[in-house]
Nucleic acid binder design. Structure first.
Length: 499
RNA sequence: GCUCGUGUGGUGUAGUUCGGUCCAUCAUGUCGGACUCUCGAUCCGUCGACCCGGGUUCAAAUCCCGGCACGAGCACCA
């Protein structure tokens, strides 16, 4: 039977069925799998710096799901490494602030792994006592060989009592760093090498910034996270897909403990065109070296830097919601975020003039009008006007200067000759170019800081001195959005947001 | 090397579970236009994609097989 035959037949039966219906783009997050009656989610950063735009995906996705299912969200600091990615004391509160700024509410539960050490140590001991883990004295290189060749290491077959003794030695500090490690006994002939007797706890003698030298044995992420997720009753884990093998490792551990593993979802790797690859530890060392002013440096992809510039949390939320939860590796552009942000703030920002590289010209008129009246917002989203006296001299941008006919926006048609302008009339009379401008009396010196890749460009100019509020974002006409960061008697300082 | 994951326009996504309603959705972007006293906003139009090759089928983005590309894990980091 051909399609035509079917079509003809259907025509007779139900003509409605033939009407083509276009597919609609489905929006919103996909439903969570499994039992969603009491959803418990978690967001678990390493407190070695403030949150970045990369972390923001985790915050947005998790808090959106928490909202959708009226679930709870645990903010957990995975701070069990004191050597390679040591915790930064200030970062704990920074992250809580960043989280709240972005999600609009504080996490329901905040925990620090370093404070939960007794729990992890207890479970580790139980694991050893139950014969599901053992103390391994092989060096990393030796074990790597065993792993590659699917061979048991000699430590694997020792008695539980011996393991327990070694466990005590590890904890009492008798064994030096690197001297031994606790492994989860899985199987050495698993096809996936990552899962073969994976390391769960190691010795660290360097002090932890919060708990000092109290503990000699610290859990690795896979163990700590697995135990804590169970302790907190986490129902759904949403994590990067680079952690897929962590899921598999942890499931093997959960089998040992007889626990039920949470539902797990993943997202792919994210790159931001403008920032390339960035890591918290990389930024940390660059800051220490003096390459950046600090974590709020305009050039950095931290949430603090974005907030400083004037991005709204809703823009990040829109961005990540639009992207959704996919396992594809993606590369996004800041321009997309900026577009979302423009939509969010356009109706909220009053207009002002910023004249960059100003040049002063004289202005005179036959007619009498020395006052300009310009709307605060062109579509009236913000009612009212800004009114200023004009005087005899005005600033215009060097690049706008041309001898001939111009229109001073919202004021008058002029003709420039030399360094003087003659007002030809106040109504717009033709299609001459419109420029922004500023009377000398209303102009105030201003500096605009614009992040450009690895540089910060400093633009000099004059700003319209009309009801300027510190901390507010304005749209400077024919220029773009910027935020006032500092006002003093000398100069107004602005940070660039976007066009 | 072993293991795992992902391939839809420039970018990001919907559709893939259960083949037909898909000459493939939406957003952003490009280009053009309208409007506007901003290079902003708004509106209209335009361009542009199913990784490749086989197979199954009346019918494949969707199912099967084989490639290829990219990414990740195999850390005493998270």
């Amino acid at each position: 039977m051909g399609l035509e035959v079917v079509r003809d037949e259907l025509e007779g039966i139900d003509p409605e069925a033939l009407r083509r219906e276009k597919h609609k783009k489905k929006d919103g997050l996909r439903d969570l799998p499994g039992d969603t009656s009491k959803v418990v989610l978690r967001f678990a950063p390493n407190p070695n710096g403030p949150l970045t735009i990369g972390h923001s995906r985790g915050v947005v996705i998790n808090s959106s799901y928490a909202e959708k299912y009226e679930g709870t969200i645990v903010l957990r600091f995975d701070d069990t490494d004191t050597k390679i990615k040591p915790p930064l004391m200030e970062a704990y509160s920074w992250i809580e602030e960043d989280f709240e700024w972005l999600s609009g509410r504080a996490a329901d539960i905040v925990i620090r792994a370093s404070e939960r050490m007794p729990v992890y140590l207890k479970q580790a001991k139980k694991m050893i006592a139950d014969g599901h883990g053992y103390v391994c004295q092989c060096t990393a290189e030796e074990f790597r060989k065993f792993r590659e060749e699917k061979m048991d290491c000699p430590c694997r077959v020792r008695a539980i009592s011996e393991n327990l003794e070694d466990w005590e030695s590890m904890n009492s500090g008798k064994i030096m760093e690197g001297g031994s490690v606790v492994r989860v006994k899985t199987s050495m002939d698993l096809p996936n090498p990552a899962l073969r007797d994976w390391p769960a706890l190691r010795i660290q003698h360097s002090p932890h910034p919060i708990v000092g030298s109290k503990y000699k044995v610290w859990p690795l992420l896979d163990f700590q996270s697995a135990v804590e997720d169970h302790e907190q009753g986490v129902t759904h884990i949403i994590r990067g897909k680079d952690l897929m093998d962590s899921t598999r490792k942890q499931k093997l551990l959960y089998e040992h403990f007889g626990w039920e593993y949470p539902e797990t979802l993943y997202w792919g790797r994210v790159k931001v065109h403008e920032f390339g690859g960035f890591s918290t530890s990389g930024m940390s060392s660059s800051i220490k070296k003096g390459d950046y002013e600090g974590w709020e440096d305009l050039r950095l992809p931290t949430l603090r830097a974005l907030r400083r510039r004037g991005f709204e949390p809703e823009s990040l939320i829109s961005l990540w919601s639009e992207i959704g939860l996919t396992q594809k590796d993606i590369s996004i552009s800041m321009q997309t975020l900026e577009t979302f942000n423009s939509k969010n703030i356009d109706g909220l920002c009053e207009r002002r003039f910023f004249v960059c590289n100003p040049i002063l010209i004289g202005i005179q008129s036959q007619e009498a009008s020395s006052e300009a009246s310009i709307p605060r917002h062109p579509e009236g989203a913000i009612p009212g006007t800004r009114k200023w006296g004009v005087g005899n001299h005005i600033f215009i941008q060097e690049e706008d200067f041309t001898e001939g006919k111009l229109r001073l926006k919202d004021f008058a048609d002029i003709e420039i000759e030399g360094s003087n302008a003659e007002i030809e009339g106040f109504d717009r009379s033709d299609g001459r170019p419109i420029i922004h401008w500023l009377p000398e009396g209303i102009a105030r010196r201003a500096k605009m800081f614009v992040p450009e890749g690895e540089e910060i460009r400093e633009l000099e100019g004059v700003i319209e001195d009309f009801e300027l509020c510190l901390g507010d974002v304005y749209q400077f006409e024919r220029f773009g959005f910027a935020k006032i960061e500092r006002i003093d008697s000398e100069v107004v300082e602005l940070v660039w947001l976007h066009g």
